[in-house]
Computed example of a mutant assay.
Amino acid sequence: MNPSPINQTMVLYFIIKGISDVAELQLPIFLLVLLIYLVTLAGNVTIFLLVCLDHHLHTPMYFFLANLSIADMSSSTITLHKVLLTFILGNDAVSFHGCLSQVYLFASITGHELFILAVMSYDRYVAICNPLRYHSIMTSGACILLASSCCLLGFLLVIPPVVIVSGFTCYTSNRIDHFFCDLVSLVKLTCSDTSILELLNLTEGLIISTLLPFILTFVPYVFIISTIIKIPTSSGRQKAFYTCSSHLTVVTILYVILTCQYILPTTLSIADKKFFSLFNTAAVPMLNPLIYSLKNKDMKSALRRWMAKSRITFY
């Protein structure tokens, strides 16, 4: 479809420009995105199934890890499916309501993931700083309540900004210079009054949805590191740090990417923004299962047991 100048007050569809406009790069980009997406699905489905099927992994830490895997798979599917479908079907248009749905789902899943990572920090804090009370604090009921709250917060906090955007009736263009319907890119196209949305993004989006989970994620590590330092033996310190190293690696990568993507937008070109978005929506969900699998003895042992039951030799 060829985009036309937008002079009317209502947009029926948007054109997603994609990762690159260069025709020669479309096939390599498609193959790369497809490979990343398939690896992401394979890795996260494997972790989810191992946690569900292996009773050795029926612990709070792996319960939250299974929730993180669901969030990663959902985030990649929501954002990357349009890149794949555009190449296969040749249709780069998305309806107005379809675009809003993508904005809502992606923002909700991102918020859900940030809160899940914060809960995983709390789980590691209890395990290392209060090991004798761990099982009395992190009960199955408490874990379900925490996971449900993360999901509920993620999906509820995004409703107000999406409702406001749905009321925008004036757009300067219907071409979104991105590979999916991103809220920031969408708002840049509107000529409607965005003052209320900007205030909401500052209070709810930045403080509640981003800064709050950031604090809840990293403050426990202050106490965790303090406790680890006080452990008298080097083997004890190493073992304690090992239990949270995978999670710390994941959250550090994620928040660095989010900072580059949203906190420093004025210093980045459109190509840079797309790169960080692609890394956030494709590479991070792919890396998460690799990080947890390669750095986690329990996951590797569970994988060996599963492969042994499937009569596959594991080396």
Rank of each mutant, 00 (worst) to 15 (best):
L114N: 02
F14I: 08
T59F: 10
L25W: 13
I215M: 15
Y62H: 15
I19M: 04
A118M: 04
A283W: 10
Q238E: 15
S148N: 05
S166F: 02
L117F: 05
I36W: 04
V250W: 01
L294N: 14
F155L: 03
I176E: 03
Y255H: 11
F155R: 02
W306Y: 10
Y262P: 03
T46I: 05
L153V: 07
F276M: 10
G18R: 09
T59D: 14
F48T: 02
M138Q: 13
L216I: 09
I228T: 14
A282D: 02
T46S: 13
L189D: 03
F115Q: 03
C129M: 09
S226Y: 14
N174C: 08
I16P: 09
L25T: 12
L145K: 14
F96K: 14
I291D: 04
M120E: 04
V22H: 09
N280Y: 09
S173H: 02
D21V: 08
Y171K: 11
V51F: 07
Y242V: 01
E204P: 00
T77M: 11
R124I: 03
S166Q: 11
V39S: 02
L202N: 07
T210A: 11
R175K: 13
G98H: 13
G98Y: 14
A240T: 11
S75R: 09
A240P: 05
P160R: 10
T172S: 11
S310C: 13
P5S: 13
L100I: 04
Y262M: 07
P131H: 09
H55Q: 14
F223T: 05
W306T: 08
L68Y: 06
Y292M: 13
Y125M: 10
N201F: 04
V51R: 01
I144Q: 10
S195Y: 12
C191P: 01
H55V: 12
H58G: 06
T267W: 06
I116A: 01
F223N: 14
G141T: 14
S234I: 15
I231V: 12
T139L: 10
I215V: 15
D272L: 08
A283L: 15
H55Y: 14
W306H: 12
L65H: 10
Y134F: 13
N44P: 00
V94N: 08
E198Y: 13
N91P: 09
S235T: 12
G90H: 10
L114Y: 04
N280K: 04
C52M: 05
C52L: 10
S293G: 14
H81P: 00
L34A: 15
T194W: 05
T46D: 06
L197T: 00
Y315R: 10
Q102F: 05
T233I: 11
